[in-house]
Design a binder for these strands. Sequence first.
DNA 1: GCCATTTTTGACTTCGGATGCAACATGAAT
DNA 2: ATTCATGTTGCATCCGAAGTCAAAAATGGC
Lengths: 347, 347
Amino acid sequence: MPKKKLSEAVPGGGPGGSGATSYDVAELAGVSQSAVSRAFRKGASIAPKTREKIMRAAKQLGYQPNAFARGLITRRTNLVAVVISNLTNLYYPEVLAELTQRLSAVGHRVLLFSLASESDIDEMLGLIWPYRVDGAIIAARLKDDQIRQFNDRGIPIILYNRVGEAEPAASVACDSAAGTRELIKGLLAAGHQRFGIIAGPEDSYVGEERLESARRHLAAAGIEPFLYRGGFDYRSGEEGLRALMEQAGGTLDAVIATNDAMAMGAIDCARSTYDLAIPGQISIVGFDGVGPATWGGYQLTTIRQPVRRMAQAAVDMLIERIEQPGMIPEQRLFGGELLPGRSARLG
Amino acid sequence: MPKKKLSEAVPGGGPGGSGATSYDVAELAGVSQSAVSRAFRKGASIAPKTREKIMRAAKQLGYQPNAFARGLITRRTNLVAVVISNLTNLYYPEVLAELTQRLSAVGHRVLLFSLASESDIDEMLGLIWPYRVDGAIIAARLKDDQIRQFNDRGIPIILYNRVGEAEPAASVACDSAAGTRELIKGLLAAGHQRFGIIAGPEDSYVGEERLESARRHLAAAGIEPFLYRGGFDYRSGEEGLRALMEQAGGTLDAVIATNDAMAMGAIDCARSTYDLAIPGQISIVGFDGVGPATWGGYQLTTIRQPVRRMAQAAVDMLIERIEQPGMIPEQRLFGGELLPGRSARLG
DNA sequence: GCCATTTTTGACTTCGGATGCAACATGAAT
DNA sequence: ATTCATGTTGCATCCGAAGTCAAAAATGGC
């Protein structure tokens, strides 16, 4: 009988079968299991000749180290949880694609969680813990006590377009306030007077930030905007424009939507329902700079979030904190780029 | 000294610290580690009173079973790899959202892989194997030998909108051929004569299927369409329309785009560059039924893939195969729904 | 060729939960 | 009370790779 732990014949067990272990490789290469382990860890003490022999055997058996065994002993899983509240929002797929690729590039896998509703977060956290992720990137609204759970467990997190309130947390965000201010400055300079705002749901962090900023800067100019609350989707934009026109008695000058999808809905509605020329009779601006915003039919005037740089920053910050626990929380705020587009007159 | 394996004080080690193990819980509850393990496995032999005691202790310590230890011994990881080629395609986020939620619902986590280019698949497979996923859902083009690698390892996979060629594989797909035929039948019935096709890249499975089907049915009517090859994105649609108009000498009747994004690009280009009325002077159809297709500015005539049902089917089929290995490959083909829209005249 | 270093190597233990098995407790049946 | 069936429990072992430590091999210096 073989000394120990040799994997049995596997179903379909020809060459390249599935269950090869380091013991199998060791036996084939005529070395110990420890040697195999070392052959796969860069920088371990092993003779080049031996490593080569082992690698040859490993290839022959289709051996890949078992991440679960490795994770158990090293306490590093190379998993990063990525939590995204509503994937169907046009904006998040871009973010997710960037994050996934950047994380892959630095040797981490993405464990994806998507929420049907923000209130499912607690339940979802219970699904994360067992996997002992090395870190998490979260684009959903975490309550302070939820952030604390990560902190208590020593799992570094990066909030994406959110910031922690009482509980400290590292974050990456696009400067919603500055972007909104820039848009409004332009709209005011072009002489707009009667403003409507199509805002997102109250439980959205960025949505509220953009709304607050818009209100503040309009107030500074002595303007009280009309307000409609939607759900960040296209339909809310249509519905929002209708509601605002009604409120304003049809004399709306400018509409600020707190994201692009709603702005596009508003544009289509303004054209088809009210037969308004854009930007001749009404200016409509959005926020995010998603793909369709630049399409010919819209050419939205909006603020583009530097998604790639933000994703890169999020990953960099996370990796830093994984490598070196206990780093100070840091907030990185990126300015957005004004896309002039053709949906608004800016001064 | 305690008998065995009691976790040390952890950083921030107050109540609810991170590293509680089953041994810690066992000690607190005054039972053996085995009992703790059984308390967490539904259907295990344990007295209700004991379980309760254990659960109380577990909660007090913030204990969550370690998925890595569990996965190591049970050889079930509850992980499913989801591979998506290009996430920025408008269509995939919907699919991903559905898949993630359905998989969560049946107790599986999603390990997400996204490809910058389809050729990265081999490299990516090397990242999957160590995690010993229970199964995989793949919306990217797998070569036969790649499918075989899954088969050899006994990992069930479901191809999404792809089918295996020589190597057998279970798959879920939308019937591209039938959908395309339906669109063409309608266009022909409405009297269109001069057709252009804006196709996707040659390495796309569904793209080629749609193209082939279109050609075949047009040929049956004695029509030879003009052809342009794009990249499935909006810009390709614009560019495609321009190219086709040139080829056709400006007398194009109908344009078949093999996905919605390109159709929308074509629509905008037809309107802005050629000042054509849609569908009065030219009919343009797409495929997929993505969100923006139904937006007011487009109201695309297209085939909507039943994404929810397809995702549900993919998950169901995968779970079946995980529970019961060695099932027969099965292909499920879903019919698409014709969205009449307003971008084409159908007979 | 011998001794002192420096590599390289293998035996053994560890990570944390699952499980077969035997021991034990409980209650019912005799 | 004795026997037997049934239900609980703990012990010991296992999963597969990583790391410790000390032994073994290779290298260098003289």
